[in-house]
Write a protein that binds this DNA or RNA. Structure first.
Length: 511
RNA sequence: GCCGCGUUGGUCAAGGGGUUAAGACGCAUCCCUUUCACGGAUGAAUCACGGGUUCGAUUCCCGUACGCGGUACCA
């Protein structure tokens, strides 16, 4: 009997959720869902000094936008509540003390100044960052170096302390990563990490294993940056709950900046003008806003799709996947080991694909919002939908529905005269006069008929129709862009088309 | 420095002892269209390096280089 799969995403609410974070959520979610398991959102807010107002709400909204709803969360509750670590504070101390009793951890009374002294005095060329470990711990002020009596004294005097894990010497630990296979560590090289901080809050290391155990997490997935501290977690599992009960691990590769090397960061967003957050994030203190994919005009389907295949593929040539399809086809084993550079151009391509794929219904709501923001009045829903169907193929980002389609809602006020004037003549003036006059006789107003009449008239007047198409386009659109010109006229309607032709004709006299 | 993880075109990547080393994005050229896109076609461009193992390594092993991550009372 297999245990029910339970995974968690455990962010620290300190700001916007960037690409890597959302991808971690996504992979967790996909894995859980394809195994009929639970996806838990746990808020790791153990560092009170890093509290950022609104960051937690931002996470909910992001998950909601992406369609990755947790089964249990601080907001939703669940059988293992609370899901906010700050509210679980009292739980952790007990485990830390058990560790001390069992000889796996100890009290440390060093002040931050003392730690600083140790780090500078032990610093050498070959060891630029000395650690609090088996080599140095006996020189520090802790229950190992000062004995139980001294410890008692300090404890009763209410001396601030932390609890540190006592890393064993020269033991080889290993971990079977679902992506990387067996990874080994020598415990001598790992420092005595703080487990419980002076304020009584646990560090990530303690909290993550205690909560993963208590919340019955079966698979623990996180970013690669956690791999180096994994031996601490393995040891904690061994000491507290039994290594055999430890969840299966997988460490995801990082998402790198598009140019150069290194982790994608907020700086890159500003520097390159590309979004890195799912949604715009405004820092409550500085007021500074970093734009997000949603605001740039991405469809959540495209965003999720793009993220899924950034570091994963199913071995076929398929690149476009819906969430449902991903649930079916995703597999941790096929996640790449190496980090991937983020490519914004490709991201836009995914969005373009999804703009064509998604229903007009869904698009119309989104596009309506964009037009509203631009103060464009939309006569009616069916007109909007027709415009959308006509221009969706040429849009990569949602805002392009405005730049590509605004002329459907208001007549051009200026024209690309440079494309017109040089080749203009009286024959063309009279052609357009007769063309717009002929509108009255077109009973079935559609692109095909419009084109037919256009061509017949042109031929009868001895002008090549091709030479007249561009002028017509400029009259209707104002510039050299847009869908097939008779489609435009057809949608615009008889009156409006006539009006726009006459608008320009009024000016040709001055040329 | 030390530890860990990586390394297939510019980018994302498939492949995994014998292949013309897929495909996508981007780029270039052409076609379509007397608009701009879309679409189609074609093209340039890749197995980090050095040793092994092998009849044969991009693929397996060992080094080296490079990159990234970690080295906090941050997660």
């Amino acid at each position: 009997m297999e245990k029910k799969v339970r995974v968690r995403f455990a962010p620290s609410p300190t700001g916007g959720l960037h690409l890597g974070g959302v991808r971690t959520v996504l992979y967790n979610y996909l894995f859980a869902k394809q195994h009929q398991g639970d996806f838990i959102l746990r808020i790791e807010d153990t560092d009170q000094s890093r509290f950022v107002a609104g960051a937690e709400e931002y996470i909910y909204e992001t998950l909601n936008w992406c369609g990755l709803e947790p089964d249990e969360s601080p907001l939703k509750g669940g059988p293992f509540a609370p899901y906010r670590q700050s509210e679980r504070k009292k739980i952790y101390r007990e485990y830390a003390e058990t560790l001390i009793t069992d000889g796996y951890a100890y009290y440390a009374f060093d002040t931050s100044e003392e730690l600083e002294v140790m780090r500078t005095s032990h610093r050498t060329e070959t060891n630029p960052s000395p650690q609090y470990d088996h080599q140095t711990r006996m020189y520090m002020r802790n229950s190992l170096s000062i004995g139980s009596e001294g410890t008692e004294k300090l404890l009763t005097a209410k001396t601030p302390y932390v609890i540190r894990i006592k890393m064993p010497e020269n033991e080889v630990l290993h971990l079977n990563d679902m992506i990387r296979g067996r990874v080994e560590f020598n415990t001598s090289l790992v420092d005595d990490k703080v487990l419980l901080k002076a304020d009584g809050m646990p560090t990530y290391h303690l909290a993550v294993v205690v909560d993963d155990f208590l919340m019955q997490i079966t698979h623990a997935f996180r970013g690669e940056e956690w791999l180096p501290s994994a031996p601490v977690h393995v040891l904690l599992w061994r000491y507290l709950f039994g290594e055999e009960n430890m969840p299966a691990w997988a460490h995801f590769p990082l998402i790198l900046k598009p140019d150069g090397n290194g982790k994608l960061s907020k700086r890159d967003s500003e520097r390159l003008g590309i979004p890195i957050f799912a949604m715009a994030w405004t820092d409550p203190v500085s007021g500074e806003t970093i734009s997000g994919f949603r605001e740039k005009g991405f469809l959540s389907e495209a965003f999720v799709n793009m993220l899924a295949v950034l570091g994963w593929n199913d071995g076929t040539e398929q690149e476009i996947y819906s969430l449902e399809e991903l649930k079916e086809k995703f597999s941790i084993e096929r996640v790449h080991k190496a980090g991937a550079k983020f490519n914004y151009e490709k991201a836009k391509w995914f969005n373009q694909e999804w703009i064509r794929k998604v229903s007009v219904d869904e698009l119309s709501g989104l596009v309506r919002k964009i037009y509203n923001d631009q103060q464009v009045r939309i006569p009616d829903e069916s007109y909007l939908r027709s415009v959308i169907m006509l221009i969706r193929d040429r849009c990569h980002l949602l805002p392009e529905f405005y730049t590509q389609g605004r002329f459907f809602f208001s007549a051009p006020k200026q024209w690309d005269l440079g494309a017109l004037k040089p080749k203009w003549n009286v024959a063309k003036t009279s052609f357009f006069k007769s063309y717009s006059n002929a509108f009255g006789s077109i009973s079935d107003w559609n692109a095909l008929n419009l084109e037919m009449v256009f061509k017949e008239l042109a031929n009868s007047q001895g002008i090549k129709p091709g030479e007249l198409q561009l002028p017509l386009r400029i009259m209707l659109v104002g510039e050299k862009m847009g869908p097939p010109v008779f489609e435009i006229a057809s949608l615009l309607g008889k009156e409006e088309s006539k009006k726009r032709i006459n608008n320009l004709l009024d000016q040709t006299g001055d040329w």
